[in-house]
Simulated scan of single mutants.
Amino acid sequence: MSIDFLYPDYEVVRNRDRCIACKVCARQCSNEVHSYDEGLGMMVADDSKCVNCHRCVSLCPTRALKIVKTDHTFKENSNWRGDTIAEIYRQAGTGGVLLSSMGNPREFPVYWDKLLINASQVTNPSIDPLREPMETRVFLGKKPDGIERSADGRIIPNLSPQIELAVPVMFSAMSYGSISYNAHASLARAAESLGICYNTG
């Protein structure tokens, strides 16, 4: 029998003295964490489905709920932390790499802020007279498997539509409402001036 049980990251704590079994938490939870147990005559929770969004906590009329981070731990050493072990288990069980929105909960360093760029080497043409001009254009689009030629030896131009970027940089897509109209207009003008692309998400 495979060992695939992972202790939930969060636990739903319900104050039985305050809970009136109104089922608001069950109706509002999109992950189906809460349910009413007819046999026990009370609300119960499946901690494994909780993502710590706190919607149930916010909407509970009697303030009977709270979400706490579990204190369950793995035996750790200098090479394997508990969260690393849990992630390996999850990836092995699902066959996929786990992604999360709204940033990363771990304290990974921001490497971009630590990069040192020598301006004399990244301008085109180069300020440094010892450097050769660089080609920074990038073409985005499907590429053919091989070159086709006509009977007279000329290359047959059968490329699918390509997007040309002056430099390999694109502004991230941000929907209307997340930033203002003026911010969108500024990004669009900057992209046009730089010869790159921009979209609204």
Rank of each mutant, 00 (worst) to 15 (best):
A151N: 09
G141F: 08
T123Y: 05
V110Q: 09
G141Y: 08
S150M: 01
V138S: 12
G141V: 09
F108I: 09
V110W: 02
N104W: 11
V138N: 06
T136K: 06
K114R: 14
R149S: 06
K114F: 04
P144K: 10
D128C: 04
L140M: 15
K142T: 06
V110N: 08
K142R: 12
I127E: 07
E135R: 14
P133R: 12
M134E: 08
N124E: 10
E135F: 13
K143H: 04
F139R: 14
G103A: 04
G146W: 07
I117P: 02
S150L: 05
F139M: 08
S150V: 00
L115K: 00
P109D: 05
N104P: 00
M134G: 11
L116F: 08
T123W: 07
M134C: 06
Y111R: 13
K143A: 10
K114C: 04
N104S: 15
M134I: 15
E107P: 04
D128L: 01
Q121P: 03
P144N: 11
S120D: 15
K114I: 05
P129W: 02
E132Y: 01
V138T: 15
D128E: 06
P144A: 08
P125S: 05
R131W: 03
S120M: 10
R137C: 11
P144G: 12
Q121R: 15
I117C: 01
G146P: 00
N118A: 05
G146F: 08
R131P: 00
D113A: 13
P125E: 03
I147G: 02
D145T: 12
D145M: 08
E135W: 11
L140Q: 07
L116A: 13
Y111Q: 13
T136N: 07
E135L: 14
K142E: 07
K142S: 04
E148N: 07
G141W: 09
Q121G: 05
L140E: 05
L130I: 02
A151V: 12
G141N: 12
K114N: 00
S120Y: 09
A151L: 10
I127S: 03
G141R: 10
P129Q: 07
E135G: 11
V138L: 15
S150H: 09
Y111H: 14
I127V: 12
